[in-house]
Design a protein around this nucleic acid. Structure first.
Ligand SMILES: NC(=O)c1ccc[n+]([C@@H]2O[C@H](COP(=O)([O-])OP(=O)(O)OC[C@H]3O[C@@H](n4cnc5c(N)ncnc54)[C@H](O)[C@@H]3O)[C@@H](O)[C@H]2O)c1
Ligand SMILES: NC(=O)c1ccc[n+]([C@@H]2O[C@H](COP(=O)([O-])OP(=O)(O)OC[C@H]3O[C@@H](n4cnc5c(N)ncnc54)[C@H](O)[C@@H]3O)[C@@H](O)[C@H]2O)c1
Lengths: 251, 251
DNA sequence: AGGCGCTTGTGAAGGCGTGCACAAATCGCG
DNA sequence: CGCGATTTGTGCACGCCTTCACAAGCGCCT
């Protein structure tokens, strides 16, 4: 993960694709994580009339502080007009370009169980710049099954198909025990981004990015806050009179 | 959200439930988010022999820095032995107590579409201290359906059932357009923690915690890194010779 | 043309989180 | 009983991120 900094050429507009292979402003990770939120808010706003949006308005729609929003957007090079706001369509274009959404990314999904089926049928992929191009499973009884227009293939074919379809992102929806093995297969096939739904840590080469979605972690964080809230609040309001350090569910 | 610090009474073991209503060490959010990871790693290690685990070993299993792990654990009050490590079962007990997992939390799920069905059938809830006690949907054709041992109820009944079952956590798996309305219903019913799968921001009172899981955001973050990697790397190794600023998917 | 109100972009300050490096503590063994 | 090996707990420094506050810039109205 080499870093690269360049103070010059701030005008890196989506229009001038000529020298577009050039370097990237190295955005803070925190900013990158928020750009998709801004993008969604912009798309929602796009329908509702106005051509421009103020940082205050967009920040409200995205649920963040307006100063933060301005700083985030300033990192990708000033596309607002003082006294007016940001041009909605231009800003959408700019953010989509930075996120690499100007090209449709090929995604494969591994593991067609409970969760895998839901993901395969999810239209949120296509509507946001991604396309599921292949489904894989190890279970012979699943291979050949047709899911949402795609035929489930055996995981052994992953290496070949990944190259054919130029797959960049792999989604793992297998049990935790199989996840590392699947990750290895994906890495061998040249996939450099992995989204992992299995509750386990994956070890991959440094050039591969892994993000994980763990339902249990989210719930446990919420549980902590419940616990804290219940232990701090004495008994004002609501039905919280029931002591927290007792049974919550019937049995 | 008042803060409270106490240097005394470091022995706040999960055993002495007598004065357990007392204050909480105000843990950093970042630490809280990692505790579930440690817990999972500990459970995995629990089966494999040894009674104690070193910070180095546990850190490796959880995929974090060992210094970070020690600092995290130190926040909940020193349960390790110098020269030896941490007692596995004791540490599990302690973390589970801090996370409020000593009691089983009642969870309800709203929206039994594609994703909702997968979540309802997920065994990762029960195995980690949660219990789905009710399912809700607005679609009359879904109400009455039996899913994984529970009957889908109409969302109008949510208020009543939430009190009956003492529901603390609500999971939203409806389309984005309905999510805010569902959140309002949950809040009115006294639910103070929400896990939101719909791609939208929810506005709730300050005492309600919301966490969101957004697939599209995760993918777009990965997409950004793909874009960056492709624009930085010239053409060494792999099959990355294909220019990034071109088509990725067939059409 | 000039002034006024509005909004962006950013300097600076403060807070939070991370990781190093080491002192303190404990165990096992001779 | 003492010593060395080992591992925890933490002081400290550094960097990232957030937030405030305000100057600079832009458009509109008179
Ligand atoms: N179901 C949910 O709502 C949910 C929610 C959050 C996380 N998860 C996690 O997602 C993962 C999948 O959950 P699920 O409920 O769909 O499980 P599942 O058992 O229903 O499905 C797992 C699928 O993976 C396939 N598989 C197993 N080993 C494989 C391998 N080596 N290569 C390819 N495919 C393989 C199986 O054949 C099966 O089809 C689990 O790790 C689970 O913890 C599930
Ligand atoms: N399917 C996935 O894999 C997936 C992944 C990530 C996020 N999501 C998100 O999760 C949500 C659900 O996705 P889905 O694919 O299951 O959609 P879906 O359309 O299949 O299911 C939505 C369900 O919500 C119910 N519903 C609608 N309005 C309601 C209301 N006011 N009260 C109660 N129930 C109501 C509908 O009757 C339906 O059963 C969406 O917001 C989607 O963006 C889905």
């Amino acid at each position: 993960m080499s870093q690269q900094r360049h103070g010059s050429t701030p005008g890196n507009a989506p229009g001038d694709r000529a020298g577009a292979v050039a370097a990237f402003p190295d955005l803070p990770e925190a900013t990158i994580a928020r750009l998709p939120e801004y993008l969604r808010a912009l798309h929602n706003l796009g329908d509702t009339g106005s051509d421009t949006i103020s940082s205050e308005g967009l920040a409200a729609a995205a649920g963040v502080n307006s100063a933060k929003l301005r700083k985030d957007l300033s990192h990708l090079g000033s596309y607002g007009t003082r006294g007016v706001g940001y041009d909605v369509t231009l800003l959408i274009e700019q953010i989509e370009y930075v996120l690499g959404l100007h090209q449709r990314r090929a995604v494969c999904l591994v593991g067609l169980g409970n969760l895998g089926h839901a993901l395969a049928g999810y239209d949120g992929f296509a509507s946001r710049g991604f396309k599921i191009v292949a489904l894989f499973d190890a279970d012979a009884s699943k291979v050949g099954e047709e899911v949402d227009g795609l035929t489930v293939r055996h995981i052994e074919d992953l290496g070949r198909v990944a190259v054919e379809e130029n797959i960049a992102i792999g989604v793992i929806a297998t049990p935790a025990g199989a996840a590392q093995a699947v990750a290895d297969v994906l890495v061998d096939a040249g996939v450099t981004s992995i989204l992992n739904f299995a509750p386990c840590v994956l070890s991959v080469p440094a050039n591969v990015d892994v993000r994980k979605v763990d339902l249990a972690i989210e719930l446990q964080i919420l549980s902590f806050h419940e616990h804290r809230k219940a232990s701090l609040i004495a008994l004002p309001g609501g039905r919280s009179a029931t002591a927290d350090d007792q049974e919550a569910v019937g049995s």
